[in-house]
C-alpha cells in the first residue's frame, strides 16, 4: 500500500521540481504549491498508512479499542500545511509585487539585485 502511494509521491515531487526549474514565477509558484503537498504526503506515508480508522477515541472508551491511523504524522502535517500555506500566500503576493515593480515575471529578466556584468571590481590602490 505504502509503495504505490510512494510512487505517486515520487510523481508529485517530479512535477513540482520540474515546475520549480522554470523561469516563470507563476510556474515556480505552482511548483511550490505541489511541493508542499508532496512533502505532506511523504510525512503521512512515512508514518505508515492505515485505512479509514481516524484517530478519534469513541465516546464510550478511554483508549481506542482497535488499531487506529497514526495520529502523530497527522498533527505534524497539520502544522506543515498551515506553514506551507502561509508561505505560499506570501510568495504569491511577493510575486505579484515583484511583477508590479520589476515589470516582468521571468526570473532571468529580474536583474536588479544582481545586474548583468556587474562583477568589475576596482583595481589599483
Amino acid at each position: 500500500m505504502e509503495a504505490t502511494v510512494s510512487v505517486l509521491i515520487g510523481l508529485f515531487f517530479a512535477v513540482a521540481i520540474y515546475l520549480l526549474m522554470s523561469r516563470q514565477l507563476v510556474r515556480i509558484l505552482l511548483g511550490i504549491a505541489i511541493l508542499g503537498n508532496a512533502v505532506n504526503l511523504l510525512i503521512f506515508t512515512s508514518g505508515r498508512l492505515l485505512r479509514e480508522v481516524p484517530p478519534i477515541i469513541p465516546e464510550a472508551l478511554q483508549v481506542p479499542a482497535e488499531t487506529i491511523a497514526n495520529p502523530l504524522p497527522q498533527a505534524l502535517i497539520l502544522t506543515a500545511i498551515v506553514i506551507s500555506f502561509s508561505f505560499l500566500a506570501f510568495l504569491l503576493v511577493l510575486a505579484f509585487r515583484a511583477y508590479q515593480e520589476l515589470g516582468t515575471d521571468d526570473t532571468n529578466e529580474m536583474r536588479v539585485a544582481e545586474p548583468t556584468g556587474d562583477v568589475r571590481p576596482p583595481q589599483g590602490y
Partner: peptide, 16 residues
C-alpha cells in the same frame, strides 16, 4: 525594486 528581486530568490531557495 532590488529588495523584491532579492526577496524572490531568497524566499524560493530558502523554502526549498
Amino acid at each position: 525594486r532590488a529588495q523584491l528581486d532579492g526577496a524572490v530568490k531568497y524566499a524560493i531557495l530558502n523554502i526549498i
